[in-house]
């Protein structure tokens, strides 16, 4: 039962209710960073990394600080500060200790602070009343779902470079229409996990 529940959360946030394509979280970077598969992949990894850590930290704050003292209304401000601090700390840590990661993710980390997927998922965790493990699984699924969607998008955009797009459609408009097709495809997964 417990495992099935975790699996359900994971599949839901990754595929059936994909963070980007059906919950509309983190769209700016979705269009901004998907111009090459390489950068899309790095962005995906960064987001996954930050979402999982942020889910964990914000769960502790929510459960041991905000809920016991009935200060849920401060949730937004506390979570966004946690995320901003966390991103800063991660940045400093990997710059010092893991230069390989720094080269890969360095320029994407600052973008993650204002990525609504991270704040969005921590808020969902808290609103749904997930426990610690469920929050982690939800965060991981969201990150991987983000990576999946952004990499697919980058792949399609790579192919599109060889296509003749009408002038008025070039750039953002065609990207949104690709997004529409992908959202439609992912919409087909809805109702996938019904018992």
């Amino acid at each position: 039962m417990e495992k099935a529940n975790l699996l359900a959360i994971f599949i839901a946030v990754m595929i059936t209710n994909n963070v980007i394509l059906s919950q509309f979280l983190g769209l700016c970077a979705y269009f901004g960073v998907s111009d090459s598969l390489r950068s899309a992949f790095s962005m995906g990894i960064t987001v996954t990394f930050v979402i999982v850590i942020a889910s964990a930290v914000s769960w502790f704050l929510d459960y041991y600080l905000l809920i016991p003292y009935h200060m849920e209304f401060l949730k937004t401000i506390v979570f966004i500060l946690v995320i901003a601090t966390l991103v800063q700390l991660i940045e400093m840590f990997i710059a010092k200790n893991i230069p390989l990661l720094q080269r890969m993710l360095g320029i994407y980390l600052p973008l993650v602070t204002t990525n609504c997927a991270v704040l969005g998922i921590t808020l969902v965790n808290s609103n749904e009343g997930f426990n610690f493990i469920e929050s982690l699984v939800n965060g991981l699924g969201a990150g991987l779902g983000y990576m999946l969607a952004i990499c697919l998008m980058a792949g399609i955009r790579g192919r599109l470079m060889f296509a003749k797009v009408p002038r008025a459609m070039q750039g953002m408009p065609i990207n949104f229409l690709i997004g529409a097709m992908m959202a439609l495809a992912f919409f087909g997964f809805q109702g996938f996990l019904i018992k």
């Binding site: 509309f24 002038r167 408009p173 065609i174 949104f176 959202a183």
Partner: peptide, 21 residues
């Protein structure tokens, strides 16, 4: 539904770009 949001936004952006051109 979600796809409709992308379609609307894409077509409106396309319209503005066309007018701009």
């Amino acid at each position: 539904l979600p796809p409709g949001a992308f379609i609307t936004m894409g077509l409106i952006l396309c319209f503005f770009k066309y007018m701009g051109n």
